[in-house]
Amino acid sequence: MAVFIVRRSIGLIAVLFAITVLTFLIFFATPGVDPTRALAGRNPTPETVAAIKHQFGLDRSLPVQYLLMMKRLFISRDLVSYGNQALKVVPAITSAAPVTFSLVLGAAVIWVVFAILTGVLAVILKGTIFDPLLMILALIGISMPVFWLGEVANLVTQDRLHNTFLFHWVPPLGYTPLTSNPWQWFLHLVIPWITLSVLYIGFYARVLRANLLDVENEDYVRTARAKGLSERRVLLKHMLRTSLITFVSLFGLDFGVLVGGGALLTEVVFGLPGVGKLTYDSLVKLDLPVIMATVIYGAFFITIANALVDIVYARLDPRIRPA
């Protein structure tokens, strides 16, 4: 086990290193791309450009640039934004991360609960009209662009039906930290949570249903039925338990992706100042250091989360533990 963890960690460090190199190359070494353009303003004189280049170390050779950048990002943590020199990149990300985390965590709770309900219900109602109906609904959920759904939700809750009893409680777009006012935190996030979870409810419900139908023909399920167990016990104790393995592994991946920056669109639509919003705001200003830092943050988060999932898995399931 220890050997496995060590080996996985070495692989992890290699991947993390590769991620920083690739990201750096994308941003600062793509042929024909000049990272200083956004900085120097319109029609800059060559002197201005040179001065700016020198200030950000962009007149050095590429490996030196890379090392400088990584040093400022990870060691001295004083990498500043191109646009706003007072904005330090690393603290900006660490202060935005809790917002993203709040958003994803709540959505995850909703999507897990409703996906299991929908999936199990579809299997129970198999053979009736409700099973295909639920699956079509799930498919519609998968087919909706999340940012569009968010806008429609805004339209309804902020404007059209805001003054009715239904949605008068919805606060204006924005965010309140959990530590300052838990109730407001909750109210601000309800609509974003639901919006973000719709896609995943649809997807997970379909996966779960397919899995449940797969295991239905397994011998151990037939044995359980033959033993005379009640349908409910068979479904919950025998079928659902095995099907949840896929479910849980997918969940680990998706949760990682969302916290790593995949919730960007939802954050933008609802004005939540998370990591995704930070990326988006820098995007508008073409503020390369910030974007690079958020991309590295996202990729790091996902990679490390995956490695942790692998290790936990190996701990739980000896079959996949490599010799």
Binding site: I26, T30, V33, G262, I291, V295, I302, T303
Partner: peptide, 15 residues
């Protein structure tokens, strides 16, 4: 290892 949108954003921004 990159989130799809972030990688696309990186490439698009640079271009």
């Amino acid at each position: 290892a990159f989130p799809v949108y972030l990688l696309a954003i990186s490439l698009a921004t640079v271009l």
